Amino acid sequence: MIYGTTNSLPKFQIEAIQSVVPIKTTDPRLTHRVSSITDSDIFQSRFHTIFYYNKVSSEDSGRTLAGWTKESLGRALQEQPIFGGRLRRGEEAEGVLEIVSNDGGIRLLEARISKTLAEFLDLEEREEAEAELVYWKDIDEENPQFSPLFYVQVTNFQCGGYSVGISCSLLLADPLAIICFLSRWANIHSKMVSETEMTKPPLFYLPKFKTNASSHTNQVGSNGVKDRQKPLIFETGKLNPNDVETRKALVSRCIEEAELKFGEKRASKFSLIVKTTSEPEEREVESYLRQGLMEEMPLSFSSGISCGSWDDLGASEVSFYEGNKPVCVSYWIGSIPGEGLLALIPCPDESVSEVFNVVVTIG
């Protein structure tokens, strides 16, 4: 199916789709608990990022990248199998969810676009068009065990350039963990293809859909503009995330800073995802009404916060072919329009385990 929202926007076509699983069966399986779900809207919150690459050699193309991804991404999943996992209902209590590394796999798509990379990056409606470069299908809340939590879409441009679009549920991983996983996958891929005869075709070229045979439509493409939210990232001073009042104070302060940064108040409700440092790892989800939270203004947040940069995450260094760094990287969070979201993420540096990063959108 070929589609585009206006005559001025390029046309896209999804040409192939399959699942990528770890190259070896995961045993034992990992489990991450998701607790305190108070609003099902959090099911549809996800992080999107797009990496754009020029074609730098005759062997370098999105088609070749997609073909080798079956193996390289499978190797990355062997190291971190939770990224190929699924949500399921736990047995302990009704409504409790957990993410299990059941080797359900990452969904991989290949697509093409009717513009060159340079033309696309120069589009006035680029944000609208970018919604077609990532794929997302809403999690089935009744039967979540059948819904992928991670999608990769490789899109080929007319010039030979290509993009790698990522969609990942924020219940599965936070943006920092996602970028780290992508960096590791890119390193594995780059090393793998450098040790292989690049003139040799990949073993797993994605099978093409027959004409008019695809029933797949890009759900991000249909609603991705209205639920696209620009995130900010903050770094906190030392704090105890297990203290509820401290968390509420942090949420209030981050909302204030984000609203000052954007110059407006948009969301009436906020969800907070807390990634614990416990073993096994757990996601705690809380909901707050902005009016009550900001009016109450719990204890002042004394440890301080500073605004960080997405460039510090290292996404601009993600290279699937040695020396071919992305010419552009886009980030956004997709969620329910009019609702804000915060993710409280422990610092990966264990020497400062009481320091946290906070990702914030304000709806």
Rank of each mutant, 00 (worst) to 15 (best):
R88K: 15
S101A: 13
L97K: 03
V100I: 15
S101R: 03
L77R: 06
I99N: 05
G105K: 06
L108Q: 14
L73R: 05
I99A: 03
G90V: 00
Q80D: 13
F83L: 15
P81H: 01
E98R: 06
L73W: 06
I82H: 08
G74E: 08
E94I: 08
P81L: 06
L73F: 13
E94V: 07
Q80G: 00
E94L: 13
A93F: 10
D103P: 05
Q78E: 15
G95Q: 11
A76W: 05
G74V: 05
P81E: 04
G74M: 04
R75L: 15
R89D: 01
A76D: 11
V100M: 10
G105P: 07
L97W: 12
G95N: 08
N102Y: 04
G84F: 01
L97V: 05
A76Y: 12
I106W: 03
E91V: 09
L73I: 07
G105S: 10
V100C: 11
P81Y: 03
L97T: 05
L77E: 10
I82D: 09
G85P: 09
R88S: 11
L87T: 01
L77G: 12
R107I: 08
F83C: 09
L97S: 04
E98Q: 11
I106G: 10
R107S: 10
A93Q: 14
R107M: 14
G74I: 00
G105Q: 02
R107D: 07
E94K: 10
F83K: 06
E92K: 14
R88A: 03
L97R: 10
N102W: 01
F83S: 04
G84P: 05
E98M: 09
V96K: 13
Q78K: 12
G84Q: 07
I82G: 10
R75V: 12
G85K: 02
V96L: 14
P81I: 02
I99G: 09
G90C: 10
V100P: 08
D103G: 03
G90D: 14
L97D: 08
V96H: 12
G105L: 02
D103V: 04
P81K: 01
L108I: 05
E94Q: 15
E92L: 13
R107N: 11
Q80F: 13
R75D: 12
G104I: 07
R86L: 01
V100E: 15
I106M: 11
A93D: 14
S72T: 15
P81N: 04
V96N: 11
L108K: 06
I82E: 02
V100A: 05
G95D: 13
L77Q: 10
E94T: 12
E98K: 09
L73E: 05
Q80H: 12
Q78Y: 09
G74H: 09
G74Q: 02
L77N: 13
R75K: 15
E98S: 03
G85H: 08
G104A: 15
G104C: 07
R107V: 14
V96W: 01
R89L: 00
A76E: 06
I106A: 11
L73C: 12
R89C: 00
V100F: 05
L77Y: 01
I106V: 15
G90M: 01
G104Q: 08
G95W: 03
D103A: 05
L108A: 10
E98F: 08
R88I: 00
R89G: 07
G104F: 12
E79L: 14
A93H: 13
R88G: 06
G105F: 08
G105D: 03
S72N: 08
Q80E: 15
E91D: 15
